[in-house]
Design a protein around this nucleic acid. Sequence first.
DNA 1: TCCAAATAAGAACAAGTGTTTGACAAAAGC
DNA 2: GCTTTTGTCAAACACTTGTTCTTATTTGGA
Lengths: 216, 216
Amino acid sequence: MSTNSHEASKSEKSIDRVYNYVKYYIKENTFSPSVRDICKGAGLKSTSSVHTYLKKLDEMGLIEYRPGMRRAIIIKNQDDEAQDPTPADVVKLPCIGKITAGQPIYAHEDYSDSFYVNRSIIGSNECFLLKVSGTSMINAHIMDGDYLIVRKQSSCQEGDIVAALINDEATVKRFGKMNGVPYLFPENDMYSPIPFNTEDCRILGKVIGLHRYSIY
Amino acid sequence: MSTNSHEASKSEKSIDRVYNYVKYYIKENTFSPSVRDICKGAGLKSTSSVHTYLKKLDEMGLIEYRPGMRRAIIIKNQDDEAQDPTPADVVKLPCIGKITAGQPIYAHEDYSDSFYVNRSIIGSNECFLLKVSGTSMINAHIMDGDYLIVRKQSSCQEGDIVAALINDEATVKRFGKMNGVPYLFPENDMYSPIPFNTEDCRILGKVIGLHRYSIY
DNA sequence: TCCAAATAAGAACAAGTGTTTGACAAAAGC
DNA sequence: GCTTTTGTCAAACACTTGTTCTTATTTGGA
């Protein structure tokens, strides 16, 4: 972004002003400016110019500019200060209800169901909760109604109990192999192993914990 | 807004979900969700419903909702909860290692092995944790190494899973009766029921939750 | 059981906003 | 001086999204 010691060209000045104004605006308002807001703020009279610079800034990796989304600019490289003062001891995790393929995990979930989990359990990993429905893992002592703590990851090892997406449906199974072929094994004699083919199946994460609040 | 004191009405649930989802979304993405995003997140199918709730939330002073502006919701009063995990939401419970008869339960506890549990689980009751050792309750899907959340109480009902003191030793069993005589039943065919006589036995509390952090 | 109020849904509309296209002027290169 | 490149602008277009209106559905109480 910086040039030599000589003066910045006109375009550099503009792109700089755009960048700075976006940062300033977000800091002031919490939300992003629109392209037209930036016009005013950066002294440009055409939305198209601003648009061009925003795309450039995105390419440079300074911002994240989602195509088509209004007021959705994200300033990057803020890691240093942006860190939430998340209390060290405890983390609030959302509970995923339904998961749709293709969408990021958190996309559609019903957020209402969530609770705190000890930080020591999940460390710095990204995790979510999954409420068990059914008894397909009963032999692993995972019961209907249990909440599973799932550490997000897209791969796993043999023997891991994983949360997986099978044809848009989220389930919990044990990952393993039979004759070298990967399967998702239920832990219940009433159910059959499911061949793991990368087309219909996707690993969401590994189960690292379990909370049960219905004891019978 | 409130109906009876015990249960939230449907509307409260929805407005709550909207509010929570907005908070969650902004935390995740930096920018606000659109009305249609909130629809998905809060499980509502009409933008108009969401719009109504957003206006209400604005009136309540919980958010700032600018008419006509896209993705420009501001969460207010973040100071309160953004800090520590609202102490009200979470409670630190001690894990009891050894318990000695006659001593109050908390007497010897070693706070080193303690962790946070959601307030919603235990309410205003006095609780403690008990780490399971052994497999005597395996048929109830309680495994070696599990942490049990025990609500302190000195009596219990038939069928309850309880923490009890038998000759100075703390164990977990299911309380029940056989031919009218009270017993403590292990949930494992390898063990025998223990007659419950008030001289050697004492109920410490009822198991109301379970945390497992060793998944195999 | 029935009616009224509260919720939610669905559709249609209107406005804000991102994106594209083309044009023009200034600057840079030859 | 002429061409090319760069920066800017203006306008038009298309999509996202906020808003409103109407109609169904549910809820709660008489």
